[in-house]
Simulated assay, not measured.
Amino acid sequence: MINRFKLLPIPALVWIICLLFVNCKPKTQDQNPIQVQPEDSWIQLFNGKDIDDWTVKIHHYEVGDNFGDTFRVEDGLIKVRYDKYEGDFNGRYGHLYYNTPYSHYHLSMEYRFSDPWYDSAPGYTLLNSGLMFHSQDPRTMPKEQDWPISVEMQFLAEVNEGEERPTGNMCSPGTDVVFEGKVDPRHCISSTSKTYKPDEWVKAELIVHGDSLVTHIINGEKVLEYTHPQIGGGVANRYDERIKIDGKPLKEGFIALQSEGQPIEFRDIKLKVLEH
């Protein structure tokens, strides 16, 4: 038998071999290319200029109504202020939601408290704020729902000099978490963080793996860890009954900055999506 490849010039033979390899490549690789983000790929959630990518929901007001200019951008910061409020605070708890929900991610931000506290707000709100995550969509909240069904990374600062008041705690409006191997009935679980002065910038990080592991980090130190966030518990009121399905795992949700009577400032809010 004649070996036909010997009759072909070398360049033509190389061309045929390359063509065979191209034709054998799986079609799915062309149709569904996998795009992997670099390890250092951070998404800036706050552009330092405006909150156009965010949505406000304040108790007693319709979604989108930023009553009293509660959430505003000044000096490159997101600021929570009450100088345009009049009369009693009247439970006007508010939240500023980033418009994209996330599931597995590493969130990093900085905060510091400011003056003056709105003194008709409940006493526990003094030097108290937080970050909500795995939250329900604000558009699913009735006008009179006070707190979103979510998990909160709570921020606190020193009230009385020398008294411990850790920050980076966990609170659970309308939710439950598993802590030390069992569902914990407490609304809030304290972290092991240090106590910080009100005017000190504090770096808070949150590492969330869907409905699995959640880690709180304050100024580079791990201060709290728990698992299996899920719908349940109390505290949230006047919600849509169709939303609160107790026992349902919280695999993803919205991220929101809190206003509850205490002025606070936020900066350098960024997020890295994690593989899962």
Rank of each mutant, 00 (worst) to 15 (best):
R72G: 10
H59N: 15
I43W: 00
T195K: 11
K79G: 07
Y226I: 02
L224I: 05
F5D: 12
E180M: 12
Y85V: 10
I231R: 09
M170V: 15
D88P: 11
L131V: 15
I78C: 08
G234D: 14
P33S: 04
K84G: 06
P249S: 03
Y85F: 15
L224G: 06
T28N: 11
P122W: 14
G253R: 00
H106Q: 12
C18H: 06
I149A: 11
K194Y: 11
L96Q: 14
G91Y: 13
L250K: 02
Y118Q: 12
D119S: 12
G253M: 01
E39M: 08
Y97M: 03
Q145R: 08
T100F: 06
A157V: 03
G168A: 02
G234L: 06
G253N: 04
I51A: 05
A157R: 13
W117R: 11
D246C: 03
G91L: 12
K57W: 02
G68P: 07
G123K: 15
R238V: 04
D246K: 14
F21R: 01
L96W: 13
G234E: 09
V183H: 03
G168L: 01
Q262G: 12
N32M: 10
E260A: 15
P166D: 00
Y98G: 05
V273C: 04
Y97C: 01
H276P: 11
M132R: 11
G48D: 00
R72Y: 12
P263S: 04
K251D: 09
D88A: 15
E275V: 07
E110L: 00
K79W: 06
P173M: 07
W15I: 14
W42Q: 01
